[in-house]
Simulated scan of single mutants.
Amino acid sequence: MLNALEVFTTVLVGVMVGVEFSVAFVINPILNALPEDSGQLGRAHGGQLLGAVMPVWYITSLVLVAVWAIAGWHRPGSGLVVTAGVLLIVSVVMSILLLVPINNRSKTWTPENRPEDWKEQSNRWDRFHYVRVAVIIAAFALLAAALT
């Protein structure tokens, strides 16, 4: 049963990393290259969609890693799992303090109501997101290493 939990948790975190990586390095660059207001509207829609899904995904991943760490405390690699859990906590705290406030504003923007500094706010979100992606990639790598 523990093996199934380990594999399921690693896959869940890995897919989350893939989504967040694609947002940073595929989706947002595509949206930024669109003409006129299309990119900003796409980012607002993405903020609504992912803003609803990702909190559940992050918290579920963190809970599963915590269960893995507790259930597998006696097994080799438990320190890697605990460290991955700490990194996921960092990513959640970063999200709540840095990314969610910007996302909550930007997901309501339209070309008619967006603030003058909307591009700067979007760029700030992107920079914070790059750091968060690095943190969750590290957490995923530690979980993958703990499996071996």
Score class of each variant (00 low, 15 high):
Ser22Leu: 15
Val23Met: 12
Val23Cys: 05
Val23Arg: 01
Ala24Ile: 14
Val26Arg: 02
Ile27Pro: 00
Asn28Tyr: 09
Pro29Cys: 07
Ile30Cys: 15
Ile30Gly: 14
Asn32Leu: 11
Leu34Asp: 15
Leu34Val: 11
Leu34Asn: 11
Pro35Thr: 03
Pro35Ala: 08
Pro35Trp: 08
Glu36Gln: 15
Asp37Gly: 13
Asp37Val: 12
Ser38Asp: 14
Ser38Val: 13
Ser38Tyr: 15
Ser38Pro: 07
Ser38Gln: 14
Ser38Gly: 10
Gly39Met: 06
Gly39Gln: 05
Gln40Ser: 14
Leu41Tyr: 10
Leu41Arg: 13
Gly42Tyr: 03
Gly42Asn: 03
Arg43Asp: 08
Arg43Trp: 09
Arg43Ala: 12
Gly46Thr: 07
Gly47Thr: 02
Gln48Cys: 09
Gly51Asn: 02
Val53Leu: 10
Val53Gly: 07
Pro55His: 06
Pro55Gly: 05
Pro55Cys: 06
Pro55Leu: 07
Val56Ala: 09
Val56Tyr: 07
Tyr58Cys: 05
Tyr58Ile: 10
Tyr58Val: 10
Thr60Leu: 14
Thr60Asn: 08
Ser61Phe: 03
Val63Asp: 02
Val63Pro: 01
Leu64Thr: 09
Val67Gly: 04
Val67Leu: 09
Val67Asn: 04
Val67Pro: 05
Trp68Val: 06
Trp68Asp: 04
Ala69His: 01
Ile70Lys: 07
Ala71His: 05
Gly72Gln: 05
His74Cys: 11
Arg75Ile: 08
Arg75Gly: 09
Arg75Pro: 09
Pro76Gln: 09
Pro76Val: 03
Gly77Arg: 02
Gly77Phe: 04
Ser78Asn: 13
Ser78Ala: 11
Gly79Phe: 05
Leu80Phe: 10
Val81Thr: 03
Val81His: 01
Val82Thr: 04
Ala84His: 01
Ala84Lys: 00
Gly85Glu: 01
Gly85Val: 00
Leu87Arg: 02
Leu87Asp: 00
Ile89Asn: 03
Ile89His: 01
Ile89Met: 10
Val90Trp: 05
Val92Trp: 10
Val92Ile: 15
Val92Glu: 07
Val92His: 05
Val93Lys: 00
Met94Ala: 13
Leu98Tyr: 12
Leu99Phe: 04
Pro101Asn: 09
Ile102Pro: 06
Ile102Asn: 06
Asn103His: 08
Asn103Glu: 14
Asn103Trp: 04
Asn103Gln: 13
Asn103Arg: 14
Asn104Tyr: 12
Asn104Glu: 13
Arg105Lys: 12
Lys107Gly: 04
Lys107Trp: 08
Thr108Pro: 11
Trp109Phe: 05
Trp109Cys: 05
Thr110Trp: 05
Pro111Ala: 06
Glu112Tyr: 08
Glu112Met: 11
Arg114Trp: 03
Arg114Leu: 03
Arg114His: 03
Arg114Asp: 02
Pro115Leu: 06
Pro115Met: 07
Pro115Ile: 08
Pro115Thr: 09
Glu116Gln: 13
Asp117Ile: 00
Trp118Pro: 08
Trp118Cys: 10
Trp118Asp: 10
Glu120Phe: 09
Asn123Ile: 13
Arg124Asp: 12
Trp125Asn: 01
Asp126Thr: 12
Arg127Leu: 14
Phe128Tyr: 15
Phe128Glu: 07
His129Tyr: 01
Tyr130His: 12
Tyr130Ser: 07
Tyr130Arg: 10
Tyr130Pro: 05
Tyr130Asp: 08
Val131Ser: 04
Arg132Ile: 07
Arg132Ser: 06
Val133Gln: 02
Val133Asn: 02
Val133Glu: 06
Ala134Tyr: 00
Ala134Gln: 04
Ala134Asp: 02
Ala134Thr: 07
